[in-house]
Every structure is written in structure tokens, then in C-alpha cells.
Simulated assay, not measured.
Amino acid sequence: MTDVANLQGKFAKVIASDHRHGGQPDIERRATALADEALNLQNSGSATQRVRSSLYATAASFRSSAMWAAIDGRRYQDAITHMREAQTLAELSGDQAIKFRIWSHAGSLYRHLGRPADARAANDVARHLHITRRDPMFASLGLARQLAIQGVAHERTALHRTFDQAQEAMGRATEEARPLWLNAFYDDAELHSLALSAYLAAGDWPTAEYHAHRCLAALRPHMRRSLAIATSRLAHAQLAQGDADAATRSAMMVPQDAATQHARVSRMLQEFGAALRATAPGSATARSWTEHTAAWRATA
């Protein structure tokens, strides 16, 4: 168990790197190598069933982090490979929390691939694990990710109800020991972030903007990647409502490192620039944005 504790300390560092930078290949490689390190310990001598289960759960945790880094970096085929390995390791561990994380991530993967039916099926596996009945915080996260899937599926009438259910479940959660990965990111800000994603995908721009502001107001300081994503989505919601000036001001607030190095953020800002030029071609606002992004590229 000392070996397990040492690996879990390394897992904490992987989680911290993910929230600062997100989607980087080096995070994916480091998490994969640490998963292999945990598995190698299985073959280094005799161990109790408790230790073996903990090692499998730790290896699954690292693989799920590699999977998420690949999703966040838009390396979707790599994410699928990590997902399959993580699912096997989670089954060997018998750990409900890591099973939830992996199937919930699978739902996110399929959502980013534009496959809402598969996303819903994967997320439903997570939501039907008994840990969601024992701990309302897991139930809340499952509902929040269902909300994002409903947005991609354009189920606009269901969004408000699902958000309320996720918020109500979070409100019932009591203080108790939970996995590091869950405590590190899931809170009111993340719930509003997923609502922002849902309403943006569904084309309800004013409600998306509302959730963007709520998310940004509640974000914890270490959530740098989430800050960049929410700010980029806010810019899209504002532009879609015809406020090019406010939208461009928002987009310019995205930190340069995220704008140039985080695949999802870079893609969102490229799409924002294209939409801005289509909406306000030749305007001073469009020229300002072009100059701003040129300065980013020059110093990247």
C-alpha cells in the first residue's frame, strides 16, 4: 500500500497539470507511463487482493487521465485506445468511482465526436452505477454531463429540468471522502460550465451567456483550462447575439498559452474569428481581433 500511496501522489500531480494546461501530449504520455508503472508492480511479487485491486484502480486512474488529455487535445483515436485499456483495468479493480470516471469520460468523448446516442449510452452506464445512489455528488455529475449531451442532441426542452436535477443532487451531497479527481474539478462552476456547453450547442445564446458568467464567477483559481474554455464559449454566445464588441473583448481575455497551445481552445477561437469576420467584415472590431491573434502567434 506504500507503493499505491506513492503512485497516488503522482496522480495528484497529473490532475494538477491537467487543470493548469489541459490536453497536452506530455500529460497523456506521463499518465500512460504511470499506468504501466502501476501494472508492473503487479508482477513484482506476492500481494494481497486489496493491494492488487488498489493497483488496478490506480492504473485505471492514470489511463483515464491519459484518455481525458487525449480528448482535451482532440486526439480522439488515441482517446479510444486509452478508454478501452482503462475500462479493462477498472473492471479488474472493482472500483466503482473509477468505473464512473471512465464511462463518464467515454460519454464526453462521444459527445465531442458528434455522436450523442453513443454519448448518452456511455454516460448512462456511469449514471446507473450504484455509487450514484450512494453519493449525490456522483449523481449530480452524471446529470450535468447528460445535460451537455442533450445540448448536442438539441433537446432544448429537457435542458432546464436536467440542470435543476443536477443542482438539486449537488445540494444534497454531504461532506465526505471522495476521489481526488472529483474534488479537484466538480463544483458549482463546473455545473454551470456544462450548462454553458449545452445551451451553446442547442443555440440558446442568452441562457448560454448567463451560465458563462455564473461559471466564471465561481471558478477556483487553479482551473486555468476551464477559465479559457468558458471565456471562449462566452465570446461565442455574445457574438451569436450580435454584440461583436463585447464578444471580442471576451475572446481577447483568453490567456495566450491556452489560445495557442490548447487544441480545443485554439479551435474555438479560430471558429470565433471566422464568425466575427462573417458577421462584421472589415469592421474595426474584426481588425482588432486579427491584430490580436497575430500578436499571439508572433510570441507563441
Rank of each mutant, 00 (worst) to 15 (best):
A121M: 13
A235P: 03
M253Q: 12
S266N: 13
I131R: 00
S283A: 08
G242F: 13
R84Y: 11
V14Y: 01
A237I: 04
L239I: 02
T207W: 05
E28N: 11
D78M: 11
A117P: 07
Q270D: 15
P179I: 04
L276T: 00
I15T: 06
I71C: 02
W296K: 04
R264S: 07
G9Q: 14
T162R: 02
K13A: 13
A202P: 11
M268R: 09
Q270F: 09
M67S: 02
I149P: 00
A31G: 06
T290R: 03
R267C: 11
R249H: 10
A153F: 10
P116T: 05
R267Y: 12
D188E: 15
S44C: 08
N183K: 14
Y56G: 05
P206R: 09
S288G: 14
V4Y: 06
R172E: 10
A60V: 02
A212Q: 00
T248P: 01
R214S: 08
A79I: 08
A201W: 01
A280K: 04
A144W: 00
R50T: 15
H105N: 13
D36G: 12
D26E: 14
F62E: 03
L89A: 09
R225L: 07
G114H: 10
R127F: 05
A59C: 07
A97L: 09
T231A: 08
H105R: 13
S65I: 07
H213T: 08
R267V: 13
A198M: 03
P136F: 06
G151D: 01
R111T: 02
H154K: 15
A217G: 08
G22P: 02
F100G: 06
A208I: 01
A38Y: 02
H160F: 05
V51L: 10
H236C: 03
Q146E: 13
H154G: 05
L143M: 09
A218K: 07
K10N: 12
G242A: 03
Q42I: 09
T248N: 04
L180M: 14
Q87L: 08
V4Q: 07
G142M: 00
R101N: 12
H262A: 09
A66T: 04
Y110G: 00
T293C: 08
R214F: 02
E176T: 14
G151L: 04
R29G: 07
Y110M: 06
V51D: 15
I71A: 00
E175Y: 12
Q42T: 12
S266G: 12
A263F: 03
A35I: 04
T299R: 15
T248M: 02
A144V: 00
T174A: 10
A177C: 11
T260F: 09
E271S: 11
P136R: 09
Q256F: 10
S54E: 14
R145Y: 08
L39V: 11
D243A: 04
R172M: 08
P179N: 06
W205P: 01
G23I: 01
S46M: 15
V265W: 00
A60K: 00
N40K: 15
K10W: 11
A247I: 01
A117Q: 13
R75N: 10
R224G: 07
Q87C: 09
G107I: 00
R156G: 10
G203P: 11
